[in-house]
Computed example of a mutant assay.
Amino acid sequence: MREVVLIIIYNHQYNKNIEILEQIYKDRFSNIYHLVPFYTGEKKNVIPVYECSYHFQGYVSQGFKSYFKEEYKHYFFVADDLILNPVINEINYTQHLKLNPETSFLPEIIGLHQRKDFWTHVVGAFKWNVNLPGVEAKNQLPDYDVALQLFEKFGLEIKPLKYLHIFKQKEFPGLSKIKKFKSYFLWKRRLYKNKNREFHLSYPLVSAYSDIFVISAESIKKFSHYCGVFASTKLFVEVAVPTSLVLSSSEIVTEKDLKLQGKALWTKEQFQILDKYEERLNLLLNYFPENHLYFHPIKLSKWNTEL
């Protein structure tokens, strides 16, 4: 048995993608599982999960007993719309990701106070309450001071948030010029009055792009547990996954430590890098850029998936 398992996470029930992804990865990974919402089919390696996609860290927890084996050294999670560089397989993944048996991987770790632009999930993290009614979760996490020590071990600071982290700059569509000017003036005045105000998190939290992560055997049980706690208390996944990893890991590698760099595509201009592949999956896999760790998102429903 190989020492790594590939676990593919589906935000939605795209059952048609299961066989396509099996074809992509079957010659590279001997052990493959799929975490699929509300799956009712017969495939043995597809695990049904029941959680909102905004909290898909809960998939990790719900599927744990199905994909966990003592023999595995690492648990390699990827989104179903993320295409991993074809050069990476179960034999060489540790070299490409610079992993040892105690090391986990996440593309990045960003303090919430470090975010330059308004991100609605910073607001969610600020408002997050572990004491959610009906959920007895508080004692399932390390207490604040212990968590802070774990963050400090990785050189991570938890600083207060600023006004613009919590309150988005106002837009005033549809108003007359006079009303728009008045509204803008009032908003600027509130901003000035609150420019030195500090907003403190109730618990140490960080953020990260979380459509690919690799968890060591040493960390997987605690990581899975914390993911479940954060899912049950409705913390957004791109805060929950990195925070769970910091709380559970002894060593973490990020993309800044690697030669291969991931390519996340969000704008029309960024997507132009895919034009040369003509939405043909075989071309993407055969001519994948050597310097990229992955492309995301690749919506397979829009591609010719004949291999």
Rank of each mutant, 00 (worst) to 15 (best):
D80H: 14
K98S: 11
W119S: 00
Q62P: 05
P48T: 01
H55M: 04
N92T: 09
Y50E: 10
V60R: 00
Y93R: 07
Q114I: 01
Q95S: 13
Y67R: 03
V87Y: 11
N85I: 05
I109N: 01
S53N: 12
H96Y: 15
Q57D: 15
V78T: 14
Q57P: 10
V46H: 06
Y54F: 13
E71N: 13
K43S: 11
L97I: 09
K116V: 11
N85C: 08
E102Q: 13
G58H: 08
T94R: 14
D81S: 09
H74S: 10
P101V: 00
F77T: 03
L82I: 10
L106I: 15
K65F: 13
K98Q: 15
L112F: 14
N89G: 10
F118S: 03
K116C: 02
L106G: 01
I83V: 15
E108H: 09
S53P: 12
V78C: 11
E42G: 03
V87P: 04
F76K: 08
P86Y: 05
I47Q: 06
K98Y: 07
I110D: 07
V49E: 04
D80P: 12
K65Q: 13
L106P: 04
N45F: 02
L97P: 00
E51C: 08
Y54K: 10
G111V: 01
V46L: 05
E90T: 07
H121I: 04
E70D: 15
E90V: 04
Q57H: 11
D117E: 13
Q57V: 10
V46G: 06
D80N: 15
Y93A: 01
K44S: 12
V49G: 07
F56M: 04
L106Y: 08
F118Y: 15
E42T: 14
E90R: 06
I47W: 12
Q62L: 05
H74D: 08
L106K: 03
V78P: 00
Q114H: 12
T94V: 07
Y54A: 06
Y75V: 03
Q95P: 00
E102A: 11
T103F: 07
I47V: 13
P48K: 02
K65P: 00
V60P: 00
L99F: 12
I109L: 13
H74W: 14
Q114W: 06
F68R: 05
N85P: 07
Y50Q: 05
R115C: 03
H55T: 09
E70F: 11
K73E: 15
I88C: 10
K44Y: 11
L84I: 12
K44W: 06
G63E: 07
E71Q: 12
L82Q: 05
Y75A: 02
G58S: 11
K65E: 15
C52G: 01
S66A: 11
Q62D: 05
Y50G: 00
R115A: 01
H96D: 01
Y67D: 01
L112P: 09
F68E: 01
L82V: 14
Y67H: 07
G63S: 11
I109V: 15
G41I: 09
N92S: 08
E71T: 12
Y59L: 04
Y50A: 03
S53E: 09
H55K: 08
S61E: 13
